[in-house]
Design a protein around this nucleic acid. Sequence first.
DNA 1: TCTGGGGTCCTAGGACCC
DNA 2: TCTGGGGTCCTAGGACCC
Length: 432
Amino acid sequence: MYALVDGNNFYVSCERVFRPSLNGRPVVVLSNNDGCAIARSNEAKALGIAMGAPWFEIKHMEFGDGLVGLSANFVLYGDMSDRMHSLAAGLGPTQEIYSIDESFIGLHGVRGDLTKRARAVRDRINQWTGIPCGIGIARTKTLAKLANHIAKTAERKPGSYPADLATVCNLAALPASDLDAVLGTTLVEEVWGVGRKIAAQLHEGDIHTVLDLVRMDPATVRRRWSVVLERTVRELQGMPCIELDDAPSPKKEIACTRSFGKPITDLGPLLQAVSEFASRAGEKLRKQGSLASEVLVFAHTSPFRPGPRFNKSVVVPLRRPTADTGDLVLAATHGIRRIYAEGYDLIKAGVMLLDLVPGSVLQHELDLEDDDCADRSKLMTAMDAINGRYGKGTVHVASTGATEKVREWGMRQERRTPQYTTRWEDVPVARA
DNA sequence: TCTGGGGTCCTAGGACCC
DNA sequence: TCTGGGGTCCTAGGACCC
């Protein structure tokens, strides 16, 4: 048996904890550069604002409708998330933190009335953090997700489901006929694992509600769609196919990408941006104790705007796996020079660290007996500590110390890719 | 004027090996 | 005339998630 605990309209709820005057008003939290809505209060949803709606399209609602748009504060949300998850953990013996606002709880061996217990945990989270939650309980993770959806919808739209399913919905406690009725009024697109494409295909095949989907033959589903959807169907039928992952393995890739507030056309600012991304990605990499073997860099123009299109990426192999910001920045800037072309309004760029292997800078340097490495490793550790305490970007790697490496690296690369030459004056110098 | 930033898993097809 | 079969690895692309 599983529970899914999910904070309602999470980012908006976090903001409301500290600004109670926002209660009852339509509120959206906006992405980077105030681009689009990434969280909506119930009132904002009632206005018909879609997830991902561009701010420029909904901004006019600030006036007649009293809509409030807030710039995101991810540090705050992360902190609130930790508190919420630690309270949710009280529901059962195991927990999988699935996202910033959701965790699955394994309920194996928990005795007594699960619904009552869930209500108590929900109340505690609300009292201690101020975040309202929905809790879904069922035999499988997919059903628990669905139960959670029902719990939240029943609360938000009275009449959509039986009122006693609001806020906490235990599908396992429902008589079979009631369960069928609930599944029969829920559309397939609400199911975890059914996205836009597959939902459209299901509707074409006259499969509209979750009840329709549950009654399908898994073998047929596998033949017509995939093993993935087959697993979803089995989970909906009550057969657990997706286990609780309470000890998540380290990330297999780490990315840092951003849209720019204003388009970038010149190489200089692009190099600066990419250096920053590589450096941030490096922090994440060291935090999880991994080394990267390859660095991918990309940049592209806006897919929404007319004009010449540019969309390129390149994978730069590293000589050896590393977590050294200097190495990562060099690889990333090398890559961006390779793909850069003049005359494009670039709207977004990013760095991804690929082919990650376990290992720390420290451990790694012992094997190499590279004198330089010990200092660099201490430097990375110190940098992460300072940036952790005083905020991101308080210190970065300046490239003067890296010049020799650039020279060496550039020459190595030049042998392999003769069309490329490094120009030293282009190497970005980060400011302290 | 203005459209997020992360991730994962699966599949198909080609290269390569014995 | 006749041109294997099975396994593994890699990559690109698609679909999904929050």
